[in-house]
């Protein structure tokens, strides 16, 4: 859609910089969640520590995006798709920061599970993580390509994550009933499952913002 440049070229540069930062945040958050799940599977405490440290960089980019968006709104008084792009960037930066936080939360639990009794026998949590990560990836692709169809597909995918979370909850209860000594692991895994479910929600939020910025309509209205 957005195509012809602005008469004021500096405005184009500012918009492009902000978009670049959002894409950078998205890539970092996606990588953090993926790395956290790998560290969980491999019980790699050292990698997990790096993920926790790396979250500060995502937070810093979010703060920069906020400043840049506010500045651009103040200086350029954007209208129509420019305004929607900036509003979307502002909201997405907050949402992506949360995705990064969930990656960090998962990483913090690596090494605290006191065993892999459940994980070794049930791959569903990793399957759920794969879908959540794929959703984040697709949402960011949709953002980069301004692709409303891809954004719509992300929202549809969220149902799978929600369903897996529900199934896992039942599995967790069943497992802890049979293996009370795995209670600590299950408590952590339950939190991780909830974090992944929230990552799916936030990827959906990002996709909704992509849809809004491109169409001026809310994707939620289409699904209601």
């Amino acid at each position: 859609m957005n195509q012809a440049g602005h008469t004021v070229k500096a405005f184009d540069d500012e918009m492009s910089d902000i978009r670049g930062m959002i894409s950078d945040m998205g890539a970092r958050a996606e990588a953090a969640v993926e790395a956290a799940m790998n560290a969980l599977r491999d019980n790699d405490v050292e990698s997990a520590r790096e993920i926790v440290k790396g979250d500060k960089e995502i937070d810093a980019i979010e703060a920069t995006v906020e400043r840049r968006v506010v500045r651009t709104i103040a200086l350029r008084a954007p209208m129509a798709d420019d305004l929607r792009d900036l509003v979307a960037a502002l909201k997405m930066s907050g949402v992506i920061e949360r995705i990064g936080d969930y990656g960090k939360n998962v990483a913090k639990r690596v090494g605290a599970l006191e065993g892999h009794g459940f994980l070794d026998s049930n791959p569903q949590l990793f399957r759920m993580a794969d879908i959540a990560i794929e959703m984040v990836h697709m949402a960011m692709e949709a953002y980069a390509r301004r692709d409303v169809d891809m954004a719509r597909a992300v929202c549809v995918r969220d149902d799978d994550v929600d369903q897996l979370h529900k199934e896992l909850f039942v599995d967790f209860i069943a497992h802890v009933a049979k293996h009370p000594t795995d209670a600590t692991e299950i408590a952590h895994l339950l939190s991780i499952s909830k974090n992944l479910e929230r990552i799916g929600d936030h990827a959906t939020n990002c996709a909704e913002m992509v849809y809004f910025s491109q169409t001026g309509s809310n994707l939620g209205d289409e699904f209601d």
Partner: peptide, 18 residues
């Protein structure tokens, strides 16, 4: 000003005209 229907309107109000 938030979601014009016409491309020409959008180009003008967003400063892309001409």
């Amino acid at each position: 000003f938030t979601n014009p229907r016409e491309e020409k309107t959008k180009d003008y109000i967003t400063g892309r005209y001409g």
